[in-house]
């Protein structure tokens, strides 16, 4: 394989890792799958398959699709989705959080729990758009689904979140 491409990829890792780490941690919130394990496999797989990277998009969206597929494989192995809803809300608390009031803190934790309870197809779109800041065309590229369908999934995701948050008693007025 082209040695230059390998070197170029290595140079990009410090820039790619923090963003992907953040996105995968959000995506995996409430699951027993570790983001760092997924990231190790992702970068290793990408490095060994750099020859198949067409370069139409950036490394990031390519890596994201590899990482997401690895997560889905892992969910299947662990039959993870069924267990997700049983994760107590306290497990979503992270030490770096900053809240001005207890009410705000509770609402944010419930929002995280609601996002984590979305089916994978909807959760991944929410994470990619709102957390990772990807555009709809980029999400379409990662998932291999057209932009219109991505928006329809975003509609369903937001609709389901509204229902869940109402049930949880979160004030949405």
């Amino acid at each position: 394989m082209d040695k230059n491409r390998k070197e170029d990829f290595k140079r990009c890792i410090p820039e790619l890792y923090p963003r992907l780490h953040r996105a995968m941690t959000a995506y995996l919130a409430g699951s027993s799958v570790e983001a760092d394990d997924i990231l190790q496999e992702t970068f290793l797989k990408a490095y060994h398959h750099l020859g198949s990277f067409e370069g139409k998009s950036g490394y990031y969206t390519w890596l994201y699709s590899i990482a997401r597929n690895l997560c889905i494989d892992e969910f299947r192995k662990r039959k993870h989705e069924k267990a997700r809803s049983s994760v107590p809300v306290e497990e979503y608390v992270l030490s770096s959080d900053e809240f001005t009031t207890d009410g705000e803190r509770d609402d944010v934790l419930l929002l995280r729990k609601a996002i984590a309870q979305l089916p994978e197809l909807l959760r991944s779109v929410v994470i990619m758009f709102t957390i990772d800041g990807m555009t709809y065309p980029e999400i379409a590229e990662v998932t291999g689904i057209n932009e219109q369908t991505i928006k329809n999934r975003m509609f369903r995701a937001r609709n389901e979140l509204a229902v869940m948050l109402k049930k949880m008693g979160v004030d949405q007025s």
């Binding site: 410090p14 890792y17 953040r22 959000a26 959080d97 979140l161 109402k166």
Partner: peptide, 27 residues
């Protein structure tokens, strides 16, 4: 309902920043 949803990005604001380089170096 959707227009009244809280800002979804607020759920993760400030979280999971790589605070030290040691974690990355280990990776």
């Amino acid at each position: 309902d959707i227009m009244n949803l809280p800002d979804l990005s607020s759920a993760y604001r400030g979280c999971w920043q790589i605070e030290t380089t040691s974690e990355f170096m280990e990776f």
